[in-house]
């Protein structure tokens, strides 16, 4: 009698284990939401990792004054002080710091859309530069010639003659352009007349080199040299170096791009 009970129950247990093991967990219902992380949500302090110490140290760094600016610099079209200043310093800094580099740039092209703020007159902090250039774009030297170079000049012409937004105008150094009506009447590259048959070397950011801001003509250009320097770091170092030598920051309009109607 007892034996039979045992046998039977073992059978039943085995059966139920079998049933259970045949089944696996399946998704039967899905509920979802994307939660906006808005202003009303409290900010965790992370006391155990002493986050406030890091934050204080960062804000101290951001508030550090590296030099003084004699004049307010803004983006502009066809020429802007901020664009002139940054494209000039980029080419100067790269020439000075890579003297052994065989690929010396002939000119520099940047974009006004990349400058997110202006440089105020007075003291300049690291934070000010982060405001102007929050992007981590680095500087490259590319090879450009022929049709691409023609497209580049046409791009400058178009961007310089239609002053529609703060992104109009092209920050340039090493190129001088005279535009009469719809025609480029004079183009100098690196202090010489532009030669359509010549191969040039252009200093720009990886963002623009990948065709950013409609600079499609840069997309297939060969990279000759990657400086691996962030444009922002170059700006900070240049301004800081001058500050150490008690030279204030300045810039001027010099008619590098002129538009005549």
């Amino acid at each position: 009698m007892l034996k039979r009970y045992y046998k039977f129950s073992i059978l039943i247990v085995a059966y139920s284990i079998l049933i259970l093991s045949c089944q696996s967990y399946k998704i039967v219902d899905v509920n979802s939401s994307i939660i906006d992380v808005d202003k009303n949500i409290l900010e965790e302090e992370f006391e155990e990792i002493e986050l406030s110490k890091y934050r204080d140290s960062i804000s101290k760094e951001m508030d550090r004054v590296i030099n003084h600016c004699s004049i307010a610099m803004e983006v502009g079209c066809p020429e802007g002080l901020l664009g002139n200043f940054i494209s000039d310093l980029a080419i100067l800094y790269i020439r000075k710091n890579f003297p052994e580099n065989e690929f010396n740039p002939d000119f520099c092209i940047l974009n006004n859309g990349g400058f997110r703020s202006m440089l105020n007159k007075g003291s300049i902090t690291i934070g000010d530069i982060f405001q102007i250039m929050p992007f981590d774009n680095h500087l490259l030297i590319l090879e450009i010639k022929g049709e691409e170079m023609n497209d580049l000049i046409k791009y400058i012409k178009d961007k310089s003659t239609t002053n529609i937004s703060r992104k109009s105008g092209v920050p340039l150094s090493g190129i001088r352009l005279k535009i009469s009506g719809d025609k480029v009447s004079r183009c100098m590259v690196s202090n010489k007349m532009y030669d359509p048959l010549k191969t040039y070397r252009v200093l720009t950011t990886n963002y623009l080199a990948s065709g950013g801001d409609d600079m499609v003509f840069l997309k297939d250009c060969k990279t000759l040299f990657n400086t691996k320097l962030l444009l922002r770091d170059v700006i900070i170092r240049y301004i800081e170096e001058l500050g150490k030598n008690n030279i204030k920051i300045n810039a001027q309009f010099d008619g590098r791009v002129q538009v005549f109607q």
Binding site: Y25, K26, I27, V30, I34, I35
Partner: peptide, 13 residues
Amino acid sequence: LALGRIDLEFSKK
């Protein structure tokens, strides 16, 4: 700026 949330209900089937 956002946190994704997906609640999955499971059942043996």
